[in-house]
Design a protein around this nucleic acid. Sequence first.
DNA 1: CCTCACGATGTCCATCTAGT
DNA 2: ACTAGATGGACATCGTGAGG
Length: 209
Amino acid sequence: MGLFLSNSGRILLNMLSEKASASVHVGESNEVGARIRRLRTAHGMSQRELAKQASVTNGAISMIEQDRVSPSIASLKKILTVFGLSLADFFAEEFEPDREIFFRAHEMNRISDGTVVLRQIGGTVTGRKMQVLHETYVPGGDTGPTMLRHDGEEAGVIVRGEIELTVGNQCEVLGPGDGYYFSSQLPHRFRNIGKIDCEIVSSCTPPTF
DNA sequence: CCTCACGATGTCCATCTAGT
DNA sequence: ACTAGATGGACATCGTGAGG
C-alpha cells in the first residue's frame, strides 16, 4: 500500500499490486474509513461520541467510515488524537512485516507428560489472545484426578477417538465430530477411556500458557 | 498576477430507520 | 421514547486550472 497526498492536501491511499507490476490505482481501495471504524468500535465509541471528542461532526465520521469522502489531514489528525495515535502510527500498521501466520507441525511447542501430548499452535506469537491446541490423549490418558480450573472459556472438537469429559457435575463421552464449550472456571477433567489415541483440536481464551 | 468557475470536502441541521 | 447510524440539502472553504 502506498500513501499519497493529493495536491489539495487530502489523503489518497493506494493499494500497490502485490505483484511486480506495482501498478497504482489512484483513489481505489481506500481503507481509511474501515480502519477508523475498527478503531472506534474497539474503543466502544459511537460516531457521535467520537465526533464530539474529535471536534468534528457525526456526519463527517459517517462519511469517512463509509469512504464516501477522503478526510483532510487536519480532520484525520483530530480523529486519531482521540485514539492517541499519530498519522505515522495509523499508517505504520500497513507496513509492519506480517507476523508469523503458518506453523509446521515440527515448529509447534510440545508439552507432554507421557499420556497427554499438547501441541500449541502459535505459541511464539506475542500478544496472542487465544490458545489453540492439538491435544492427543493415549488410551488411559488423563488430565488427572485433580480437576482443572482456571479463568476463561474453552471449546474443542474431537477429531479422533473418544474422550470422557467431566465439567462440574456433568460427564459425557464424546466421539469424532462432537464438541464442547464451557467456562474454564468450572472444574473439568479429560480422560481417554477408549482403546485408541484421542485427538482434539481445542481453543482456550485467554491463553493459560 | 488576478479573477472566476468548478470540484471536493466540511459543517450544520433536519430527518429517517432500526434496535432497545 | 431514546439512541445510534445514515442520509440529504444548503452553504462555506479551499485548491486547481483556465483565461485575460
